[in-house]
Amino acid sequence: MFDARLFIEVFITLFVIMDPPGTVPIFLGLTSAMTHKQRARAARTAIFVAAGVILAFSIFGQQLLTYMHISIPALQASGGVLLFLISMELLTGKMEEPQASSKNVNVALVPLGTPLLAGPGAIVASMLFVQRADGDARSLVSIFVGFVLVCVCLWVAMRFASVVHRILGEGGTLLVTRIAGLLLAAIAVQLIADAVIAFVQTA
Rank of each mutant, 00 (worst) to 15 (best):
V16W: 05
L14K: 07
L14V: 15
M127Q: 05
T35W: 02
I54E: 00
A186H: 07
A193M: 12
M88F: 12
R39H: 09
T66E: 08
K103G: 01
P98K: 00
G171I: 14
P20R: 03
F2C: 04
A74G: 09
V10Q: 01
S71L: 06
S142E: 11
R41F: 13
G80V: 05
R39P: 01
A108N: 01
I143N: 00
R5E: 06
P25L: 07
P120I: 10
F84W: 13
F129D: 02
I179Y: 06
A108V: 10
S71G: 15
V200S: 02
I12M: 07
I123R: 03
T177L: 08
M68F: 13
T31F: 10
A51G: 12
C153P: 09
A100S: 06
T35N: 04
H36W: 07
V164C: 09
I187N: 08
I12L: 13
L65T: 15
I12R: 02
S71Y: 10
S126N: 03
G61F: 11
E9V: 13
K37E: 13
R5H: 09
L149S: 07
D136A: 13
M34W: 02
S87E: 00
A157V: 11
F84N: 09
A161S: 14
S102P: 02
R132G: 04
I123E: 05
V141N: 07
G181V: 11
M95V: 15
R178Y: 08
W155T: 12
R41Q: 13
S58M: 15
S102Y: 07
I59W: 08
S142D: 00
L6P: 11
R138T: 14
L183Q: 06
P21R: 03
S78L: 02
G171F: 10
I17D: 00
A108Y: 01
V10P: 01
T173D: 07
I72L: 11
L117E: 00
A51N: 00
D3L: 01
L91Q: 12
I167P: 10
R138F: 02
F144P: 03
Q131D: 06
V196R: 03
Q131M: 11
P98M: 04
L175D: 03
G22P: 04
L168D: 14
N104C: 07
A122G: 15
L182S: 09
T13L: 07
A118R: 09
A100E: 06
W155Q: 08
G93E: 08
I197C: 01
E97H: 14
F144L: 05
G121C: 02
D3M: 07
Q62L: 10
R44C: 12
G169F: 15
Q62E: 11
F11I: 12
I12N: 01
P73E: 11
F7E: 04
Q63Y: 10
L128E: 05
V164A: 14
V152M: 11
A42Q: 12
S139G: 02
I59D: 01
G52E: 09
A108W: 06
R44V: 15
M68N: 02
L154R: 05
P98R: 00
S162Q: 09
L117V: 15
P25W: 04
V16A: 12
P21C: 04
V124Q: 04
G169Y: 11
L30F: 08
T13G: 15
L90T: 11
S87I: 14
S126R: 00
R5V: 10
G172E: 09
L117G: 03
I17N: 00
I17H: 02
A43L: 11
V124N: 02
M88K: 04
